Simulated assay, not measured.
Amino acid sequence: MNDQTKEYKINDSANRITEIIHSEIGRNNIAGGFSDYGGIEIYGNLSFFAFTPNLGPLVKLNVSTANTNENGIESKLILKRINGITYKMHFWFTIIFVGLALIIAVYQLTEYGFDKAEFLIMPAFGMIYLLIVELIAGLKVSSLIKTVEKVMMTEKIKYKKL
């Protein structure tokens, strides 16, 4: 898991940025609300499929702002990835599955030699599954970051990546 945190220097007040992002919830296929971590959490409104019970989004993007000077002309925008319960469920299920499959594969290899090498395929499929989940989560976070940048461009807010 990589830490996907982006920081921006913005030539506007932190309150205005927060109001703009909050007003965009419900539009541009994003949903969200105020976060327990401070700021606003946004996540994709659309998904390809849903499970029952629904455990929420795979990943969320925490949008927090802070004024960097006293007169409120400059502020800092921090976009941080937060893994949802769905991501954690997929991650830990895969880790447990790969661990058990690896134990079985090592046992088969010690008992029967390399005649049973096909047992190593299951842990490999588990790792491929984990990489696919991580790829989808990374793409969703990148999409949310681009959506926030697009909103700032639409509102004619000047920003600079730090």
Results as ranks from 00 to 15, higher is better:
Y107E: 13
G113L: 01
A117R: 05
V98L: 01
Q108W: 05
E118Y: 13
T94I: 01
I121N: 13
E118G: 09
M122H: 12
E118R: 06
K116H: 11
I103C: 09
L102N: 04
A105L: 03
G99Y: 02
L109I: 04
T110P: 04
P123Y: 03
A124N: 07
A101Y: 04
P123F: 10
I95T: 03
A124K: 15
L100S: 14
A101E: 08
K116P: 06
F119W: 08
I95D: 12
T110R: 12
L109H: 08
T110H: 02
K116D: 15
I95N: 01
T94R: 04
P123E: 13
F125M: 07
T94H: 12
D115K: 01
F97S: 03
I95F: 08
A101T: 00
I121P: 08
I95P: 05
V106Q: 15
F97N: 14
F119T: 15
P123T: 12
I103W: 06
G113H: 00
M122E: 03
I95A: 04
F119R: 07
T94G: 04
D115A: 11
I95E: 09
A105D: 08
L102T: 15
Q108V: 08
Y107N: 03
I96N: 04
L109D: 09
L102C: 03
A105Q: 09
K116N: 06
Y107T: 14
G99H: 00
P123I: 13
K116L: 06
L120E: 09
F125P: 02
P123H: 07
Q108K: 02
F97T: 14
L120Y: 02
M122V: 14
F97K: 11
A101V: 02
I103E: 04
F119A: 12
F125T: 14
F119E: 05
P123Q: 07
F97I: 08
D115C: 06
I104K: 14
L109K: 12
I104C: 11
F125Y: 11
V98C: 14
E111S: 08
I121C: 13
M122Q: 08
I96S: 07
Q108A: 13
I121T: 14
L109G: 11
V98H: 05
I96T: 00
A105T: 11
V106W: 00
G99T: 15
V98M: 09
L120D: 12
P123R: 10
Q108H: 03
L120R: 05
I95G: 00
E111R: 13
F119Y: 15
A117C: 11
E118N: 12
L109V: 04
L100P: 15
L120F: 03
F119K: 01
F125G: 05
L100F: 13
L109W: 15
Y112V: 03
D115P: 00
G113P: 00
F114N: 07
F97H: 09
T110K: 02
G99N: 06
A105E: 08
L100G: 14
A105M: 04
Q108I: 10
G113V: 09
V98E: 03
